[in-house]
Structures are given as structure tokens and as C-alpha cells.
């Protein structure tokens, strides 16, 4: 039973999120301002915070920065601004994830779930030495198993090979041709066009929002890469 704090100045949005989250079986607390959220955090045991950025008085960024001084509870920012700068600033200040308004409630639920899983399993992840891992995805190459936040994901052999190639070289950009050459072990005679389709499928299986991937990034006009996690 997890407790989630929703911090937003709009009561309607708070109510909607409460309905969704209680429907999923979470206990929900509400705060209308950043200061209220901080005082609630001090008094209650809270497992995750949904924080709106644009609020009167103390804004979400400041509240998150203050919160991080005492606690490492997961924070998901809700932002109306779609500029990259705001996302980057939010993540730098200490947020773990973000959703942009107007959000899809199901996406919020999925991100909440993912963050909670990760928070709960933080200790167990680094234990497997042979495993390849990035952003909640763990690959056990011996058992040929891939898990996302502990849940097993069914991948085709090609998808598995592509994921392994990317996981082994985090941060490196592979073009479709390179991936084809390495995975198929063959010269890419105009057949590399299938690689993006496979990657698309892979993203659909691993990402919450495949159109805006957070793990398997599309570098447009160059190729694909797995985001290097700050180790």
C-alpha cells in the first residue's frame, strides 16, 4: 500500500488524479501549494510525489529542490511547458520523471507504477554482475531474459539482439546499417529498412510513451542509442 502525494493548485486535476490513483489501490494525499506539500512530507510517510510546476507562491521546481534536501522519495513533475529547458531543469533539480500537460491519465499511472517499482527494488538491481541494465531494463544474457522494473518482457530474438547491442554500448549511436551488420551478421543490401521497425516494436514494449522514448532514443538522421544512465 503506497501513499502518493498530489501537489497541484487546480482542485479538479487533483480530484481526477485521486480517482485514477485510488482506483489503482494507492492511498492519496493532496496539497494545494508547495509549502503544504513540504509540511505533509514532514509529517506523513509518502512514497511518491506528483508535483505541478506552475503554482502560486512556491513553484514546483523550488518545492522539489527543498524536498530533495531531506528525502529521496520519487518525484514526477507535471508541467504545462513543453520546452526542453524546463524538463532538463526539472530533472537537474531532483525530479525523477515528468509528464506534460495535457497528460494522458494512463501515462501518469504507468509512470507512477514504474517509479514505485524502481524505488522499491533499488537495492536488488545492482546485485547481478553479468546483467546489462539501463533505466529499469535489466537483461540477463545467460537466461535470455529481459525484465522491466522486475516484470518479464517477451521479446523476439531480433529485438533481443538489438537491445543487447545497444545495452552493451550505452550512449553510442548506431545507424540502421550498423545494427543490421552487427545483428544479422550480413551486409545491409537495402535490407536495413527493417531495423527501424524492430526498434519501434522494441520501444512499444519498453517505453511508456513510445512516441517520446526515454530509454531507447532516436537520434534523427543518425541512428539509435540507449541513454547513458548516470552511474
Amino acid at each position: 500500500m503506497y501513499t502518493i502525494l498530489i501537489c497541484d493548485d487546480e482542485p479538479d486535476i487533483r480530484a481526477a488524479l485521486r480517482i485514477y490513483l485510488t482506483g489503482e489501490g494507492y492511498e492519496v494525499l493532496e496539497a494545494g501549494t508547495g509549502a503544504e506539500a513540504l509540511s505533509l512530507l514532514a509529517r506523513r510517510e509518502i512514497h511518491l510525489v506528483l508535483m505541478d510546476i506552475m503554482m502560486p507562491g512556491m513553484d514546483g521546481m523550488t518545492a522539489t529542490a527543498k524536498l530533495r534536501e531531506q528525502s529521496n522519495v520519487p518525484v514526477i513533475l507535471i508541467t504545462a511547458k513543453s520546452e526542453d529547458n524546463d524538463k532538463i531543469l526539472g530533472l537537474t533539480v531532483g525530479a525523477d520523471d515528468y509528464v506534460t500537460k495535457p497528460f494522458n491519465p494512463l501515462e501518469v499511472l504507468a509512470r507512477v507504477r514504474a517509479q514505485l517499482r524502481r524505488f522499491a527494488q533499488l537495492g536488488g538491481m545492482a546485485a547481478r554482475p553479468s546483467g546489462l541494465a539501463a533505466g529499469g531494463v535489466v537483461m540477463d544474457d545467460e537466461a535470455k531474459r529481459v525484465t522491466l522494473h522486475g516484470e518479464e518482457i517477451a521479446l523476439t530474438p531480433t529485438e533481443y539482439d538489438i537491445l543487447r547491442l545497444l545495452l552493451r554500448n550505452p550512449g553510442k549511436v548506431f545507424s540502421s546499417r550498423e545494427i543490421y551488420r552487427q545483428v544479422w551478421n550480413d551486409a545491409p543490401l537495402s535490407a536495413e529498412g527493417t531495423v527501424p521497425v524492430h526498434i519501434r516494436h522494441l520501444r512499444e514494449k519498453l517505453e511508456i510513451d513510445p512516441a517520446n522514448p526515454r530509454l531507447i532514443r532516436v537520434v534523427w538522421g543518425k541512428g539509435y542509442k540507449i541513454e547513458e544512465t548516470g552511474k
Binding site: S176, V195, P196, V197, R200
Partner: peptide, 17 residues
Amino acid sequence: PVDLCELVRQCAGEYAE
């Protein structure tokens, strides 16, 4: 620098379905 061929392939992949 952007490779247009790679871009077209990527877009094709995205829009395949």
C-alpha cells in the same frame, strides 16, 4: 550533419504500422 537516408529509414520504421 544528418544522413537523409537514415532519416527516411527511421521515419519509415516509425510509420510502418
